[in-house]
Design a binder for these strands. Structure first.
Lengths: 152, 152
DNA sequence: AACTTTTATATTGTGCACAATAATATTGTA
DNA sequence: TACAATATTATTGTGCACAATATAAAAGTT
């Protein structure tokens, strides 16, 4: 057996044999590339994701928003305050339940969607993958994500 | 044409049509699952990645380490100080070049590798994907990651 | 040697991420 | 009605991430 095929017990913790490491690194690198284009909208990547949820689904409570974007109150509470400060969302406690916090778009926030549709085009081809490979990747990630939350 | 197939200009910024969003969310969710098992080693996920690089490649400067794990000085400098405080790495300026910072494993850090090899097994099947799908995913992510850094 | 330029790491500032906990309003129950 | 349980968001504390900048050593230049 060739030397370079010899197995040892540490193979499992080699970076090149890990799945999570390229997942982690790739996510970071891609998100880093969003920074420049998103600067024009005054948004971070996470803020952009939150805005996408609001553009698509409209007014929601903080916790409903959290489910859509996989973030908890500890992250969303300060992030939403920053978005409010920027004037793109409103944070309102509904009269019928003072615990909840309804997040809605301001006119400025709604209008920002027109700028945002330029982002995907600007990010086109940022990943060194063919369109088919990108579709495969998305299918696999969607499946992996569906098996998250409560399970395992 | 059916209503639900109708296209509009905002389709490109729907969360369900994005590739980056499941990449980002999936990465976060998987890393979150590492937390409990890694607590026994006293490591965060990022620290675990840095330790894996050191276990595999041995003593390196900070910048060499940064290239391996896709992190810059702003993240690594404080992280390495924390690892030194825990007694698993040494930070030493070599005599021949006082600018560089050589990161090496202590005995304790080396010994930690024996505990670390239990982590991949503990994370087995955490992703709702078949072994073949995990291999496909890894192949795609590795390719995407290779096209990063300088390009696009 | 005095200087510029380059290299390598550290620091600063802003924001995300999340577990743990606190605070408060609502709902359920004795 | 009191009071326990639950639901919802906010706060706290630690650590990561990264752009921009600072610091300082080394190497190159005149």
């Amino acid at each position: 057996m060739k030397d370079n095929l010899k197995e040892n017990k540490y193979d499992c913790i080699r970076l090149r044999n890990q799945l999570c490491f390229p997942l982690y690194a790739c996510s970071k690198e891609v998100i880093r590339k969003y920074r420049k284009p998103l600067e024009k909208l005054g948004l971070t990547y996470t803020q952009y994701v939150v805005m996408m949820a609001l553009w698509e689904f409209g007014t929601m409570t903080e916790s409903e928003l959290g489910e859509k974007v996989y973030l908890d109150s500890g992250t969303l509470a300060p992030l939403l305050k920053r978005l409010e400060k920027q004037g793109v969302v409103n944070r309102v406690r509904p009269d019928d339940n003072e615990r909840k916090l309804c997040i809605s778009l301001t006119e400025k926030g709604q209008a920002l969607q027109e700028e945002a549709i330029k982002i995907p085009e600007a990010m086109q081809g940022c990943m060194n993958l063919t369109p088919e490979e990108m579709m495969q990747l998305k299918t696999l990630l969607d499946k992996a994500l569906n098996g998250t939350s409560k399970n395992s």
